[in-house]
Simulated assay, not measured.
Amino acid sequence: MSETLTLPSHLRAVRAAIADALGIDETEAVPEATLLGDLGAESIDLLDILFRIERATQVKITVADMADLLQGGIPDEEFGDENEVVNDTGLTHLEKVLPQFDRSQLTEPLTADGVLGLFTVRNLTDLLTERAAAAGADAA
C-alpha cells in the first residue's frame, strides 16, 4: 500500500497543499519539516498553503491562528524583551505547544521573527485537526 493511502486525511491535505503551493513533491513535506526553513516557504506562501487547506477541508486557518498558538495569548512584553528576543516565559510556552522544540538546541537567542520559523508540517496538521474538531463540535 502506498504511503499516501495510509496517511491520516489531515496530514494528506496539509502535505498536498504545501506541495502544490511550493511546487515540491509531497514526500518532501515530512511531518518534522519546518515550513519556512526546511521547505523554503515565504510568508506569502503561508497564505497560499492555508487557502489550499481551507479549500480542501472547509476548515479555515489563518496566519494569526498560527501566531496565536505560538504565543498562547501571552502579551508581547511578557513573551519577549524590548529587543524582541523570546524570554524564559516565551520559551517555556513554546516547549509546551511545539513538541519538537528544545531550547537547549538554540545556538543564538530566538527572536520574535524566528518563532514562526519553528512551525512544522506536523504543527500545521495538528492545528488543522484541532480546528476541524472544534468546527464539528460547533456544528453539533
Score class of each variant (00 low, 15 high):
2 S>D: 11
4 T>N: 11
7 L>V: 08
10 H>R: 10
11 L>Q: 12
11 L>V: 09
13 A>C: 07
13 A>R: 03
13 A>F: 02
18 I>L: 01
24 I>F: 03
25 D>I: 14
25 D>T: 15
25 D>P: 07
25 D>M: 14
26 E>P: 07
27 T>G: 05
28 E>P: 00
29 A>N: 08
32 E>F: 09
34 T>P: 01
34 T>V: 03
35 L>M: 01
37 G>Q: 15
37 G>V: 15
38 D>S: 15
39 L>E: 00
43 S>K: 13
43 S>R: 13
43 S>M: 13
45 D>V: 11
49 I>G: 05
50 L>D: 03
52 R>C: 03
53 I>E: 02
55 R>S: 06
59 V>M: 08
61 I>N: 07
63 V>G: 07
64 A>L: 11
64 A>D: 11
64 A>W: 04
64 A>T: 13
65 D>L: 11
66 M>S: 10
67 A>Q: 12
67 A>C: 07
69 L>Q: 09
71 Q>A: 13
73 G>H: 11
76 D>N: 04
76 D>E: 07
77 E>R: 14
79 F>Q: 03
79 F>L: 05
82 E>L: 10
84 E>H: 09
84 E>G: 04
87 N>V: 04
87 N>M: 06
90 G>F: 00
95 E>A: 15
98 L>Q: 13
98 L>D: 09
99 P>R: 14
100 Q>T: 14
102 D>L: 03
102 D>G: 03
112 A>R: 13
114 G>H: 06
122 R>H: 12
125 T>N: 08
125 T>C: 11
126 D>L: 14
127 L>Y: 10
129 T>G: 07
130 E>C: 12
131 R>G: 05
132 A>Y: 09
133 A>F: 03
136 G>A: 12
140 A>Y: 01
